[in-house]
Amino acid sequence: MVKIGDVNIGEFPLLLAPMEDVSDPPFRALCKAQGCDMMYTEFISVEGLIRDADKSVQKLDIYDYERPIGIQIFGAEHDSMMRAAEIVEEAKPEVLDINFGCPVKKVVCKMAGAGILQDIDRMVKLTDDVVKSTNLPVTVKTRLGWDDNTKYIEEVAERLQDVGIKALSIHGRTRKQMYKGEADWSLIGKIKENPRIHIPIFGNGDIDSPEKAKLYRERYGVDGIMIGRAAIGYPWIFREIKHYFATGELLPPPTVEERVAAARAHLEHSVSWKGAKLGILEMRRHYTNYFRGFRNIKEYRKRLVTEENPADLYAILDEIEAVYGNKEALV
């Protein structure tokens, strides 16, 4: 069994990557129902937390059915990170995760997220401070390096382990790559081969099918796989991978009814948690993926991303189920 500290997360855990404006409670509920073993919140600004900003504090919301769950924070100042760690501990997650991987410019320019990959000594000291500030097991998510010339992840893994982190998730790209090109897992595999490394190592990047998950599990020897973009609008990826691991067989894709039911549940939970206006707005990014592959879906999708009334949105979803409720309607 794989453990993060004393937290048991399964024999070969599938983890949901923390994604801003995606990995919220409504989305996490769907992923958990489809077999996700460990989930993380959206990343939370430590400056927002210590200033009690509404948006940051709301992201601390976690529910018993989500457990085990990690709350992820990002920041660059030692005092702020330590104070935020104390606030996170009060929310009682199983794990506190530090984001050292976000490539977005507004985060990087503050030397937070992947920005700190430009200063490994500072990255290690910041992690050490957080570890010493909390009783929660601390984990880190990061990238291979800042660019192709600074792929220091093997050194980083050892040094972060030495200051006390309990697991490391690695996205197989540099910050310069953003999300372009193919994720390179070869260095992740080398870390797993390092006899000094004893903490779980989770690979992240480009896992979008059961076959690829199995291939990368066997090729690189990771302790688990973290899935991000492939789960957006398609939480069934977790059950499909688990079924393939267990049987070697591919599950059929979700039915039209399952897709509509998931979209409806997601919308209902989103509106309930965020309020109608924001819940409807942030739901719009998911519809394309829920109904990917549906023939002539463009007009329905246009209505879904422009309608502002919850009742009308539910009616559109009912229409989709009625029209596409036979396999001939799919591409």
Rank of each mutant, 00 (worst) to 15 (best):
V2D: 08
F12C: 06
V22H: 11
P25T: 12
P26V: 02
F27P: 00
A29K: 10
C31F: 03
K32R: 15
A33H: 07
G35N: 09
G35Q: 05
M39L: 15
T41K: 04
F43C: 02
S45V: 07
E47S: 12
L49I: 07
R51A: 12
R51H: 15
D54A: 15
D61P: 02
D61H: 14
I73L: 13
H78S: 15
A84T: 07
V88Q: 07
E90W: 00
K92F: 03
L96M: 06
I98V: 14
F100S: 07
F100Q: 09
K105F: 04
A112C: 03
A114H: 01
L117S: 09
D121S: 14
L126G: 04
T127W: 02
D129F: 05
V130L: 01
V131H: 01
K132W: 00
T134S: 14
N135K: 15
P137V: 05
V138W: 00
K141S: 11
L144N: 09
W146A: 03
D148R: 11
N149S: 04
T150A: 04
Y152V: 00
E158H: 08
R159L: 12
L160G: 13
Q161T: 06
V163Q: 13
L168Q: 05
S169M: 10
R175G: 01
Q177R: 08
G181T: 05
L187Y: 03
G189D: 02
K190T: 09
I191G: 13
I197W: 00
I201A: 03
F202W: 02
G203D: 01
N204M: 00
D208T: 09
A213L: 08
L215G: 01
Y216M: 13
E218R: 06
V222W: 05
D223T: 01
G233I: 08
W236V: 04
W236N: 06
F245I: 04
L250S: 08
L251S: 08
V260E: 02
V260G: 05
R264W: 11
R264A: 13
H266T: 11
L267W: 04
E268P: 02
H269A: 15
H269T: 14
H269C: 13
H269M: 14
S270Q: 09
V271Y: 01
K274F: 09
K274L: 12
K274T: 03
K277N: 10
L278I: 13
L281F: 12
M283C: 09
Y287I: 03
T288E: 15
N289E: 13
N296H: 11
R301S: 10
T306P: 05
E308A: 04
N309A: 00
P310M: 06
A311S: 13
A315Q: 10
I316A: 07
L317Y: 07
D318Y: 03
Y324H: 11
G325W: 01
N326K: 12
E328R: 10
